[in-house]
């Protein structure tokens, strides 16, 4: 923890120890997931070290805990940003009360709610849409040949950014309280990053379409004594045409609202029937 000093500046009452505990407590965010309020118990759980420090007496503790048990839901990997902001706000709230001012406890939840949606959008497109896809793309191509390296690469490609964001997100969120999202939104940096992350994801997905989807037609037509190998025709037009056509066709079906399960069974049936008839 190189920059602990920045965190524990003169104003802060939070010790590095509290941040360490909060970091570890951010992992079981969804342990008590239930439909009505989703990740609420998990969010309160990670606030406990900071709240304990701020509110040792039962009455204040009760207010604070109830405040953090309202509905919450976001991408797990980026939750610590919000936790950091919430800790900073709780601390400000406590200070305002000590100064005899009327704090606004509801603002903590207002900010949490305002952050969880947009951050989930960003988090989903980076972690689900980019790091996971690149990891799975590279991982599957190695693992398909039986190499354990594929599994290791998959976990690393996803988890190195994941753990960095989780660790530094807490500090950045805390340090800049409210201001960090404003400054990042200026000039649309976050939006621009999400856009290019999608581009990167698509290049990898396109490559996977070519290397992972396998479809060939072994059918040989004999017309007037001449043998025509159908697959040669396809290869002559453009190699890898059939897998591309299959993928785009499947995409069209999904766009038209066909269910994933229906398409899946359809493929299996087409595969079996085609194989029995000797077409595929």
């Amino acid at each position: 923890m190189a920059d602990e000093k920045v965190l524990t500046n003169e104003e802060s009452v939070m010790s590095p120890d509290i941040f360490k505990k909060t970091f570890w407590r951010s992992f079981p965010l969804q342990a008590c997931f239930f439909y009505e309020r989703m990740q609420n118990v998990g969010f309160a759980y990670q606030m406990v070290p900071a709240l304990k420090k701020l509110y040792p007496n039962k009455e204040e503790a009760s207010e604070a805990l109830k405040r953090h048990l309202v509905i919450f839901n976001t991408t797990p990997a980026i939750v610590t940003f919000i936790t950091g902001v919430a800790i900073a706000m709780e601390e400000k709230l406590k200070k305002a009360k000590e100064m005899g001012e009327e704090g606004d406890p509801e603002s903590v939840n207002a900010v949490k709610t305002a952050l969880m949606g947009p951050l989930a959008g960003i988090g989903d497109s980076f972690f689900w849409g980019t790091f996971r896809i690149i990891g799975a793309g590279i991982g599957c191509s190695l693992a398909a040949q039986g190499s354990i390296l594929g599994v290791i690469m998959f976990l690393l490609i996803y988890n190195v950014p994941h753990l960095l964001v989780r660790y530094f997100g807490l500090k950045i969120g805390y340090r800049s309280g409210m201001s960090f999202l404003d400054s990042m939104s200026e000039g649309g940096i976050i939006a621009a990053l999400s856009e290019v992350a999608k581009v990167l994801g698509l290049v990898v997905v396109g490559s996977m379409c070519a290397s992972m989807v396998k479809l060939a037609i072994p059918l040989v037509l004999s017309i007037g004594g001449a043998e025509i190998v159908l697959q040669d025709i396809f290869d002559g037009i453009i190699s890898g045409f059939l897998p591309l056509a299959l993928t785009l066709g499947t995409y069209k079906l999904l766009q038209k609202g066909f269910k994933t399960t229906t398409i899946l069974w359809g493929m299996i049936i087409v595969g079996i029937v085609g194989s029995v008839l000797g077409i595929l």
Binding site: C209, L215, T250, Q255, I268, G271, I272
Partner: peptide, 26 residues
């Protein structure tokens, strides 16, 4: 022949996974 058919289908199935991803990214 059915077992062979499963093998053909397993080459096609990744197209579905990829198509779902395309919905997410396109």
């Amino acid at each position: 022949s059915v077992i062979d058919g499963f093998s053909v289908a397993s080459g096609m199935l990744p197209a579905l996974g990829i198509a779902i991803l395309m919905q997410l990214l396109f």
